[in-house]
Write a protein that binds this DNA or RNA. Structure first.
Lengths: 163, 163
DNA sequence: CCCTGCGTTCAGTGTTGACTGAATATACTG
DNA sequence: CAGTATATTCAGTCAACACTGAACGCAGGG
């Protein structure tokens, strides 16, 4: 086997280890499995791709968790699954659309709240309630537009860089 | 008892009930207690303030949950606690700083991720990893600035409206 | 064919945390 | 001080879910 992917089984540099761990906690706070966050963090700082066994060994968790969480991350658009000729293993690497996908998720969160506020019935005879809902909805729209602009600009720049 | 706060114990309008329920689910998806989301949703569409008993009865949950979650919401800046002369009960109402506080929470989330990315060690001999981390960090900063601008503008407008 | 190396799935375990009713604390009223 | 109305806290229950080891499925290679 060529030595391109050696060191995948080596213990992590302490700094990287700390980063991976903090990423796991960050995701856990957002209600997602901590292992998913650690996988993501590890692949963020890993050039190239890792097999499931690489991830399981480096993170010290079961292959079952790696399998399910890596697929979940792929579903969310954070990872991409690749393969190599003459190798039956699956390899995961950080998605190329990482930035876009992250912003898109923030956008979706903002839109969900705005939609809910927009559809909220305005109680009769309570203009202050209606005003509050309107204000709240409006600021969400502003934030949505602002983040949307960032996303559009980023996509434009990326296209310019690639084309 | 004066009739100012009558109807606080009445069953909710179906449309409002639906809104409150959806708000609860939205908060639950964000990893927060569903009851907290329902309290917040209810007070969003309620003019004036509600006592703990009002909230418990209208939402059909225990007073214990109302007590803890309402205080949590107050800690987060979503609710304000008020009192009335000659009435020993606590009353909660939607905070006046609602909009600012919501944006601020989004900002904090963005900043936490950006900080983590900024502090991530760049592995030696892997320029593509460093570039990825830099890009990711940069776009978070852009989003942070964009939302920060929305917040600043909103505050400015609110000051103009009040002053 | 079996054997081996993968990925996935499944049943089980432990933990976390929301939610509750009851107990407790606290403050006001007579 | 006794009595009452409020809020908080506490111990317990329950459900959800992350995580695991083991079983299973599936493909190639001898």
């Amino acid at each position: 086997m060529p030595s391109v992917d050696r060191d995948k089984h080596a213990a992590l540099d302490p700094g990287l280890q700390h980063f991976v761990e903090r990423m796991g906690l960050l995701w856990e706070n957002d209600g997602l499995p901590r292992i998913a966050g650690r996988i993501f963090g590890l692949l963020l700082v890993t050039p190239g791709a890792c097999s499931l066994d690489d991830l399981a060994e480096t993170l010290g968790v079961s292959k079952a968790s790696i399998s399910t969480d890596a697929r979940r991350l792929e579903q969310l658009g954070f990872l991409e699954r690749t393969s190599r000729p003459g190798d039956r293993r699956d390899y995961y690497r950080a998605s190329n659309d990482l930035v876009e996908r992250s912003l898109q998720i923030r956008l979706d969160a903002l839109r969900k709240v705005r939609r809910l506020l927009a559809e909220a019935p305005r109680p009769h005879g309570a203009p202050e309630v209606a005003a509050r809902l309107d204000d709240f909805e409006r600021v969400h729209r502003y934030a949505e537009d602002a983040v949307g602009d960032v996303l559009a600009r980023w996509k434009h720049d990326a296209a310019a860089r690639a084309g």
